[in-house]
Nucleic acid binder design. Structure first.
Length: 843
RNA sequence: GCCCGGGUGGCGGAACAGGCAGACGCGCCGGUCUCAAAAACCGGUGGCCGCAAGGCCGUGCGGGUUCGAUUCCCGCCCCGGGCACCA
């Protein structure tokens, strides 16, 4: 054993030993409580960065801790290995995406082992392995059987840089691609969809069943799903002469109570009726100008939010079902085809956008809802028919109020979800011209991608039979290796791939050449870990039932919607298929903060990257692990500091020397000791206080304070050595403290703890197979406590009293301690807070 | 505009349930050892006043509740993130 702490000597040694002994492989064991701890699996980008180090270290500490606590802990890892970066890298370096990907996986795997992570390597999944992606295709077929797959044409997001379409979730708020950040364009294309909207209600409602998720993430998902209650209202379209036709146009509104204030009607520029309405009329030119301007607009421009509204009159009218009034139909660029029906009833007095539009184009703004304190209410309260056509307001009013100029509903209180809303909806339902309705912002998930390095969609286009699923028995549809991505080829360039016969009629047919969104691969990997090597089924029901749901999931906030929403959707479908019995995959979620340098995220372009490898080379993996945990609570961002890492290494050196000295001291046995002196008592108490603190803190993910507590125990042990000279020490206690500290440290600095346990303290068997130190509350309890004495809120003295002293006696001692401050004053009140302080109020 | 976070020493951060603000670490200052340095160790370290004992101020700002507020309530300011022409 070397005298100094030398991580470079001990870390690789133990990493090899753990691998040799398969120390972290687990199987189902009905006698133990289970715990499934999962960190989001990485994309194999090559080198690991500090974000990985932090994410996986947090998980590793918790996994190791729970194992020592007697749990059967599933702690797997794998690679989210399909995706565009592999294609881009392949083009750059003239290799094949597969080669690049598998080489990177090896590099990353080596880095993870070098960090000492306790993964069950036998369960590794790699999503681009045939044995994995075939089950992804199987899922696609099962979804299809259940009516959850659809191929349809609609306006979609197109990333010109990635040369593929994107799902709505994959376009960031400012209208750019989530991966490459280039501006996304709109294109009308036929694509494959998963009908996630069928689960919209459940995805929203079940958020309430997830108390272990951060509020922030739940709020973001709820926001994204965007449920609105309201009504559908049918407006009858008039012909060119203004006579009603058989055609109705339906709108969705959250405020049917304001229908009487509808003075114009709007269609989205992309609305299919627009061309037909203006064809061959004098209105065609100005309307088409608006349509074309909107079409040219990029998603970035659209995402800018409220801008100048543009529109044009179509020359046509619709009939308002509540009052039979004919209102003009306009095309307006602020109406979205993607939301609701692409048509809107405009109520300028109650909607700010309609208000601005009306002011721009000189359309009337009659008031239909007035706030209780509006002076105009007096004259309008009883007025059923429209008398006032134009408010003088500066902006629309959408708050609660009284309905006016609203026929039979006049005088009724109303507002969002108010009585008026319900009354008008019922009225419409009775006449068949409207109905209660719920609308979601969430759109179906566009899953097809026009790229090579992904999971092929198992479908065939047959000229006779249409779209035909590939039979289950023919899975997998293999992704051919021969595609030359460096020439920009995709599956659509490979006749040997797409030429096929129809599974239904055996006639010539064309295989689908799109691949699936990589988010489909990551939506079920956590289930596959439960039975990763199964070739007969996606997983064995009992094995998934044994481990799932994931007890603790750890990953980045960037997946607050994307991966986490998709996975929840998949799990609900699996439940409906009978593959699992639960509807939520992740019971608890921790979103870890970013690692920053100089206040900014580490990135190559900013040139502020700190390479984990360099830090390991200098201080070892253990110091790096402990450091990233110590510098901030896991969910907060942390600011990297080299000096801080050095300080961590220093502390580990101190622990090393302490345990080494104790090891030497107690090598020949602990003999008799049992001194009852205060220093010894104090150290014993401190030891148990720290056991309690570290145990609690891990449970709360306060890993930074748990390390601080271990530092305090180290300091206390050194204080004891200073206070009690060689030969006089309680060796049994000294040994107990050293062993306790080693056990507490084991999850954090697994190599050092292993070396101390076996080589320095001379135990048999891995420290990681030992039981977590037992916390003894009575041992941690102090016999005497120091209490502060406050006079009028200021600390004026201190008393040290027996912990169980009666309140009157404490009070008496306190009065004595602050006698000078009480002189000549009258005590008005005195409060004793056990173990903390005495508060005296004087006059 | 709406919804979440957050604002505490020179820095990262503590304070679990309203109870002594600043744990722990970094940095800095002083010291021991050394020819010197590194390492290690010892002591100090919120601000102001004071030789000292001690006193006053102090958790973004302004109020409030309370014996007592970083913590609870009301009203603001600033920073970060998410969503946003969603009818």
């Amino acid at each position: 054993m070397s005298r100094r702490y030398d991580p470079h000597a001990i870390e690789p040694k133990w990493q090899d030993a753990w691998e040799r002994d398969s120390l972290y492989s687990v199987t189902e064991d009905a006698t133990k409580p289970t715990y499934y701890l999962l960190e989001m699996f990485p994309y194999p980008s090559g080198d690991i960065h500090m974000g990985h180090v932090r994410n996986y270290t947090i998980g590793d500490v918790v996994a190791r801790h729970l194992t020592m606590r007697g749990h059967q802990v599933l702690h797997p890892i794998g690679w989210d290995a399909f995706g565009l970066p592999a294609e881009n890298a392949a083009i750059k370096s003239n290799t094949h995406p597969a080669e690049w990907t598998y080489a990177n996986i090896e590099t990353q795997k080596a880095s993870f082992k070098r960090m000492g992570f306790s993964y069950d390597w036998d369960r590794t999944v790699v999503t681009c392995d045939e044995g994995y992606y075939r089950w992804g295709q199987w899922i696609f077929l099962k979804f299809w059987e259940r009516g959850l797959v659809e191929r349809k044409s609609s306006p979609v997001n197109w990333c010109p840089s990635c040369k593929t379409v994107l799902a709505n979730e994959q376009v960031l708020g400012d209208g750019v691609c989530w991966r490459c950040k280039s501006a996304v364009e709109k294109r009308e294309l036929e694509q494959w969809y998963f009908k996630i909207t069928e689960y919209a209600d459940e995805l929203l409602n079940d958020l309430e069943t997830l108390p272990g998720w951060p509020e922030r993430v739940k709020a973001m998902q709820a926001n994204w799903i965007g449920r609105s209650e309201g009504a559908e209202v049918d407006f009858t379209l008039c012909d060119a002469d203004g006579e009603p036709t058989d055609t109705t146009i339906t709108v969705f509104t959250t405020r049917p109570d304001t229908l009487f204030g509808c003075t114009f009607f709007l269609l989205a520029p992309e609305h299919p009726l627009v061309g037909e309405l203006v064809y061959g009329t004098e209105y065609a030119a100005p309307v088409l100008k608006v349509v074309e301007a909107a079409a040219k607009e990029t998603a970035v421009e659209r995402a800018m939010g409220e801008r100048e509204k543009r529109g044009a009159f179509t020359g046509r009218y619709v009939v308002n079902p509540v009052n039979g009034e004919k209102v003009p139909v306009w095309v307006a660029d602020y109406v979205l085809m993607e939301y609701g029906t692409g048509a809107v009833m405009a109520v300028p007095c109650g909607d700010q956008r309609d208000f601005e539009f009306a002011r721009t184009y000189g359309l009337p703004i009659p008031p239909v809802v007035l706030p209780e304190d509006d002076p105009a209410l007096e004259t309008l309260r009883e007025v059923r028919d429209r008398q006032f056509d134009n408010v003088t307001w500066e902006c629309a009013y959408d708050g609660p109020g009284i309905m006016v100029q609203s026929g039979a509903f006049t005088g009724m209180p109303t507002g969002k979800g108010g009585a008026g809303v319900q009354a008008v909806t019922r009225w419409l339902e009775d006449r068949g011209t409207g109905r209660f309705s719920i609308n979601f912002r969430l759109r179906d998930w566009l899953i097809s991608r026009q790229r090579y390095w992904g999971n092929p969609i198992p479908a065939v286009h047959c000229p006779a039979c249409g779209l035909v699923p590939v039979p289950e028995t023919e899975l997998p549809v293999r992704l051919p290796r021969s595609v030359d991505i460096t020439k920009g080829e995709t599956l659509a360039d490979h006749p040997e791939f797409y030429t096929t016969t129809c599974p239904s009629c055996s006639g010539p047919a064309r295989r689908e050449t799109d691949t699936m969104d990589t988010f489909t691969c990551s939506s079920w990997y956590y289930l596959r870990y439960c039975d990763a090597r199964n070739d007969e089924a996606i997983w064995e029901f009992e094995k998934a039932a044994y481990w799932m749901p994931v007890d603790q999931y750890i990953g980045g906030i960037e997946h607050a919607i994307l991966h986490l929403l998709y996975s929840r959707f998949f799990t609900k479908v699996f439940r409906d298929m009978g593959l699992v019995t639960f509807g939520e995959p992740f019971t608890n979620l921790l979103t870890q903060g970013m690692v920053k340098k100089d206040g900014e995220v580490m990135s190559k372009s900013k040139g502020n990257v700190v390479a984990p490898e360099d830090m390991i080379a200098e201080f070892g993996a253990d110091a790096l692990r402990a450091y990233v945990l110590f510098m901030a609570p896991p969910d907060k961002d942390l600011e990297w500091s080299y000096d801080g890492l050095e300080g961590m290494f220093r502390w580990l050196g101190r622990v090393w020397r302490l345990v080494a000295e104790v090891g030497k001291e107690t090598a020949g046995g602990c003999g008799i000791a049992a001194s009852g002196d205060p220093a010894t008592k104090n150290l014993r108490r401190e030891t148990h206080r720290v056991i309690g603190k570290v145990s609690d803190d891990i449970g709360r993910f306060q890993l930074n304070t748990s390390i601080a507590a271990m530092m305090e125990l180290t300091n206390a042990a050194y204080d004891y050595r200073k206070a009690v000279r060689d030969g006089a020490r309680d060796l049994a206690l000294t040994r107990e403290v050293a062993e306790t500290l080693t056990l507490l440290l084991a999850p954090y600095v697994p190599h050092m703890a292993e070396e101390l346990w076996s080589e320095v303290l001379g135990h048999q068997g891995s420290v990681h197979r030992q039981a977590w130190p037992a916390y003894d509350a009575s041992a941690a309890a102090a016999e005497e406590v120091e209490m502060a004495v406050q006079v009028n809120g200021k600390v004026r003295g201190r008393i040290t009293v027996a912990a169980d002293l009666a309140e009157e006696a404490i009070m008496a001692a306190a009065f004595t301690a602050v006698a000078s401050h009480l002189e000549g004053k009258e005590v008005v009140k005195a409060v004793v807070v056990a173990g903390k302080l005495v508060s005296v109020v004087v006059k």
